[in-house]
């Protein structure tokens, strides 16, 4: 199983989806991200690990410009997705966010029906020309979100009535429904129990065949289980970025080693 993944990963290594050069983020006077350079490959799961407050979530939020919504936050440097500078004036953050979907730490379904939750993105972006087409998108997204069988008979019920794990898969399906190219996940399992976590991790493994997935996680086991590449952040610096198997078996930086062996963190 492991070997197969390695082959698949090698096949995709060549496509770079996201390139970040010299990215700095400031919250007011706090220097949260310091000169980060990274290349994220397409159709891969990339995990960001590191201790709390190391800036991994902040960096993740740079990739779809969610930091724009925070007044005191300032981002410098260059981030390219498919060779398009996402901070360029010509880029509309609203369209960027349709292209780069995001799943949050706490499941946040809208207080609407399950159907309306999924249809939200397609509706605001005009992806469906008819009701039939919208129905298809909703079903396809829920199937890809691995939750279709559990909710197909109650699409009219509120999404907030689902269990935590179901809500999070609903949110993933909702993000998929806008047909993004990149899927950002900010600690998607930290509010879930082990069984729901396993289901979401399985889903993430499925998703990387079609999307470039970037996941922030506190759990090193999770990073080892789901990702092909891992980046270790510490105090706002990107310390080490390599194949997941390399990071966990043969870290080059002493800080990485200390963190994965549990001495810092």
């Amino acid at each position: 199983m492991n070997d197969m993944r390695k082959i698949e990963r090698d096949a995709n290594m060549t496509d770079t989806k996201i390139t970040a050069r010299g990215v700095n983020v400031y919250y007011g006077d706090t220097h949260a991200i310091k000169d980060v350079n990274i290349e994220i490959t397409d159709k891969t799961v990339t995990a960001f690990i590191g201790p709390s407050g190391c800036g991994k979530s902040t960096f993740l939020r740079c990739l779809n410009r969610m930091n724009d919504t925070i007044d005191i936050c300032r981002v410098t440097g260059e981030i390219r997705i498919d060779d398009q500078d996402i901070n360029h004036k010509s880029v509309d953050p609203v369209q960027l966010r349709a292209q780069v979907g995001m799943v949050f730490q706490k499941p946040n379904p809208f207080p609407k029906s399950i159907y309306d939750n999924i249809a939200y993105g397609p509706r605001i972006h005009g992806l469906a020309k008819s009701k039939v087409e919208l129905d298809e998108i909703v079903e396809k997204s829920l199937r890809r979100g691995a939750i279709w069988d559990e909710v197909k008979d109650r699409l009219d019920e509120p999404g907030t009535g689902l269990s935590g794990g179901q809500q999070q898969r609903l949110c993933i399906a909702r993000a998929i429904a806008t047909e993004p190219e990149v899927l950002l996940m900010d600690e998607p399992c930290s509010a879930l129990d082990p069984i729901a976590t396993a289901q979401v991790e399985e889903l993430i493994d499925e998703l990387h065949r079609d999307y470039s997935v970037v996941i922030v996680t506190h759990s090193m086991q999770q990073a080892a289980r789901v990702s092909q590449k891992t980046a270790f952040f510490h105090l706002g610096n990107l310390v080490e970025f390599n194949d997941t198997s390399e990071i966990f078996t043969n870290p080059t930086d002493t800080r990485t080693e200390s963190y994965i062996t549990g001495r810092i963190g």
Partner: peptide
Amino acid sequence: QAMRDGALGLGSTRGEMMTTVLFPA
């Protein structure tokens, strides 16, 4: 705030977020 993040993260404008999520809630 999670509702706002959710709506913005899906690529809605602030206006769409207001009319479709915040206002009904």
